[in-house]
Design a protein around this nucleic acid. Structure first.
Lengths: 155, 155
DNA sequence: CTTAATTGATACTAAATTAGTATCAGTTTA
DNA sequence: TAAACTGATACTAATTTAGTATCAATTAAG
């Protein structure tokens, strides 16, 4: 079970690249190269994020993308929901007919509680918080000679 | 994003049917009919659960399946892991090469904390706890004339 | 001792989702 | 006016999920 699809993963990385670019426009080409995201895939992804009003674009030479909101107002929760749909237990068979699967219903009740917890946590994580963490890690990284992350961030 | 695939959902319902059957053998045909699960799909599912040592079978006429463990020892967590793989954030690109995606790493660190919470919760939910809840709901159901679930269990 | 009800094993098809590619038109700046 | 860009959209490929089919082996009951 994968919590983030590549699309969401790429989206987050692209947004972090835009956060780093501050108010200037960053081109898809640049993001693609820096973050190692397939160019055309990124392009469609960026269009979707325009639709979600997370970013805005500028056409033509020197064009590109920049954030349309403060980084702290872009929640990972919204990205997951936007790209992967709202978190749900399994398809609800209720109402289709009298719910044959009362077992699923009971389980659902339990899981909805868990979902709420998860949802609250993903709400707290924003492009802003991630960006600041990232800067910290990069700071540590440059201070040492090694290419390795601190033990606590390895996986 | 769906937390439970149909396979996991079906597996849970099948196990609850076996829990209801106590120590007698319940046939795939019966489970399929009662729980409205496609027969052949259920068959392969049951074979997998034998492999997982959750259930045992008896061949021939009057044969079928029964639980191989106490209901309280069958955790939903194990079912999810068995059928959908361990909960993970996104594919780890670390070690493949020097981790280009430090952003993902930072996010991962956050998410791993969340995963732990979720994991602990799914550990607490077992076929035993679900079975008892189910009996409660069914009790309420029979007591009233209505086919509706109590408000708190609707979704 | 034969038949029908069952599981064991395994291979296959279909549908849905995720991931990635291609193309061409329009815009902008140097 | 050419090159560097995005807008829009349609397509292909890969993977995962869902479901089907088949045949052999086992067992209880008449």
């Amino acid at each position: 079970m994968k919590v983030l699809t590549k699309k969401t993963d790429y989206a987050i990385r692209a947004l972090l690249a835009l956060a780093a670019g501050k108010d200037s426009y960053v081109s898809a080409k640049t993001i693609s190269a820096e973050q190692d995201i397939p160019y055309q895939f990124l392009r469609t992804l960026l269009q979707e994020m325009i639709g979600m009003e997370l970013i805005i674009s500028k056409e033509g030479v020197q064009g590109g993308f920049r954030l349309n909101k403060e980084p702290d107002k872009i929640q990972v929760k919204h990205l997951i929901e936007g790209f992967q749909g709202k978190v749900q237990v399994s398809e609800c068979m209720f109402r289709k007919q009298l719910c044959k699967n009362r077992a699923t219903c009971v389980l659902r009740h339990e899981i909805m509680r868990i979902e709420q917890v998860v949802s609250n946590e993903f709400e707290k994580i924003t492009i802003g918080t991630l960006f600041r963490n990232l800067q910290m890690v990069n700071g540590l990284h440059q201070a040492s000679e090694s290419d390795r992350l601190p033990e606590s961030l390895q996986h």
